[in-house]
């Protein structure tokens, strides 16, 4: 039996290494460009570790059992009548419970951190209308733009509005997303921490042009942002 356990653990480790390679060799997440996404990526890796362990465990027992105890189809004996094991059953109720509650707590903490609006947040209004995004900067006057420009390291508070149907505002590199819903106002916070050009994508099916409802987002230095604002107002 001891030999069997060693073999089982070996299969588990091989599976675990394979799955870990899949998890780290591919860059699954887009480069983070916001403080919020940095925190989300921490939970993502926490969940990934749990997933690797659980998948390797289940996979190893399945592979090992089939390898070890497969019989020809005409075999007519029965296996040992094992009806259960109270200790095991308590363990596999309790351990997953602890894991998911830990994940829940970490997630709730991050959710709360990502929802802390500072009093000097840059106010941006994002208006969704079939099939384009428009942005307003109420702190700086009443102009509208089709391009989203944000200063780096400055928290921005988005207020969403939808003119016709539901749209959803998403910048993959910001990791933040929120629906724009007719009749109500919704908000989301983004604190860009990397300059560059990104894509604004609509992620809620909004009709025929949904796939093309995109806009450009640029994260620039404060000085460039001020210059851009001046240009818009002119």
């Amino acid at each position: 039996m001891r030999k069997g356990i060693v073999q089982l653990v070996a299969i588990g480790i091989v599976l675990g290494v394979l799955v870990t390679l899949v998890a780290v060799l591919f860059q699954w997440l887009p480069t983070s460009a916001s403080k919020e996404f940095d925190r989300i990526q921490d939970i993502y890796w926490f969940a990934t570790v749990i997933s690797i362990v659980i998948f390797s465990l289940v996979g190893a027992v399945v592979v090992y059992s089939v390898w070890k105890w497969r019989v020809p189809l005409d075999d007519d004996l029965d296996g040992p009548p094992i009806h259960g094991h109270t200790g095991l059953e308590i363990a596999w109720t309790a351990v997953p419970a602890i894991l998911v509650i830990a994940l829940g707590i970490v997630s709730a903490v991050v959710l709360s951190e990502n929802g802390q609006a500072s009093s000097n947040a840059l106010q941006v209004k994002a208006i969704g209308q079939q099939f384009a995004w428009r942005f307003e900067y109420p702190d700086y006057g009443d102009f509208q733009t089709g391009e989203l420009v944000l200063p780096v390291d400055q928290q921005a508070q988005f207020t969403m509005e939808a003119v016709d149907v539901i749209h959803s505002f998403w910048v993959p590199n910001f990791g933040q997303k929120m629906d724009a819903v007719p009749g109500i106002e919704t908000t989301i916070l983004v604190t860009p921490d990397r300059t560059g050009a990104f894509a604004v994508v609509c992620t809620e099916l909004c009709g025929l042009g949904h796939a093309t409802m995109r806009a450009k987002a640029r994260v620039v230095t404060q000085a460039e942002f001020d210059a851009w604002i001046a240009e818009q107002k002119a």
Partner: peptide, 29 residues
Amino acid sequence: MITTLLIAIPTGIKVFSWVATLWRGRIHL
């Protein structure tokens, strides 16, 4: 979120129990 994550517990019980049923069985593939 908490209730959603809790569903993993009964679901996990089922998965682990199927796997444990395989253990030392006479498996007809």
